Simulated scan of single mutants.
Amino acid sequence: MQKIKVGIIGAAGYTGGELIRILINHPNAEIAFAHSKSQASKPVHITHTDLLGETDLTFSGEDIQGLLDGHDPNVIFLCSGHGESQKFLNEFSVPSSTKIIDLSTDFRDESHGFTYGLPELQKDKIKSASKIANPGCFATSIELAILPLANAGLLKDEVHVSAVTGSTGAGQSLSATTHFSWRNNNVSIYKAFTHQHLTEIKMSLAKLQAGFNKAVNFVPYRGDYTRGIMANVYTRYEGSLEEAKSLYRNFYTDDPFTHVSEAPIDLKQVVNTNKCFIHLEVHDGQLLITSIIDNLTKGASGQAVQNMNLIFGLPEDAGLRFKAPAF
């Protein structure tokens, strides 16, 4: 099979770096260009130091339209900041045969012909899509925690979520709340009840349980570590624990990356992988769902490649079988 030609826009950031790491080892893909204005003409390993000895790729900084026309990529990944993807598509002409996978928030409402790219939610639709809006990291973890309930029509009450993310979730740019001396030995709440991922979470729930209009009460935390999300979700539930486990396992039976664990789970089990692990408990009529992912892989670049695999008819897990550190 001829390899998929890939272009990456905004390749110097965290998600761009993770895409490069995944794609240089993908059996069915090759990187045609990795574009970065700020790092133009520099070797990729100068910015993404973990790639020293892995690739001799250099950042492209020349005219983007020239890259698109000259390489005619099969797919491009948009990894620039939120709001930049809309500007990109307004400014540049993408070949009609080129698929687009956007990692920003710009099209997660499925506007402008984009398909929301959560494979566990709408795999068949993704397979026939030409433009994918990759889900947010918190949204991925939370949606995977509650979609089986919505699919069974079992969301009867408000949903309560507390979730903590690593510092890479804030991106590479420095700010007061990403600086080491502030983040180290520290935990804080931000955007309580107003986080931008709530919009896509509610949209996804409505696809499976039309008419669900209860609140999703989401309190996000900044964690004192670099990678991973743990979401603890609870809502009213009238069934048994065994019924809940059966419901979740059946819902994810055809999904290679989402698994229900009998034992309690911890973040190191999924860091550096494209997996989501789920643990269930029932307490006094409440179902507690713990969901863990790596925010940069299943929450961003890994899921983007998973979507690429589906679009091009590849095995869903191609190039995505990574081992977690675990200890």
Rank of each mutant, 00 (worst) to 15 (best):
G61D: 01
H45P: 01
Y190E: 06
N295W: 00
S188R: 11
Q306G: 06
E243S: 15
L296N: 13
V233I: 15
L280W: 01
F180D: 08
I24P: 01
A210F: 06
D109K: 14
T15P: 11
E110H: 12
N74G: 13
G113V: 09
Q196A: 14
G17H: 11
G319V: 01
P315F: 07
N274F: 06
N25R: 13
S60Y: 09
H35T: 00
D255Y: 14
F138E: 05
M1E: 07
V187W: 09
I293K: 04
A145N: 06
S204N: 12
N134V: 10
F77E: 03
A139Y: 02
N74K: 07
I101H: 09
H112Y: 07
M1D: 06
M1G: 12
Y190I: 07
S60F: 12
I101D: 11
T49I: 07
I265L: 11
L144W: 02
G239W: 05
T235R: 06
V94A: 02
G166E: 05
Y116G: 05
L118V: 05
A324C: 08
G302F: 00
A150G: 02
S167K: 15
P220E: 11
A11I: 03
V75H: 00
G285C: 08
I64A: 00
S167D: 06
S261A: 14
N25Q: 14
L57F: 02
R21H: 09
G17P: 06
T15A: 10
I293E: 05
Q2N: 14
T253D: 07
A129Y: 00
I201H: 03
F88E: 01
H82I: 13
L320V: 11
N186T: 13
I189G: 10
N90K: 14
F33P: 00
V305F: 04
Y237A: 10
P27R: 02
F218K: 08
S104C: 07
S80P: 00
K298W: 04
Q86G: 10
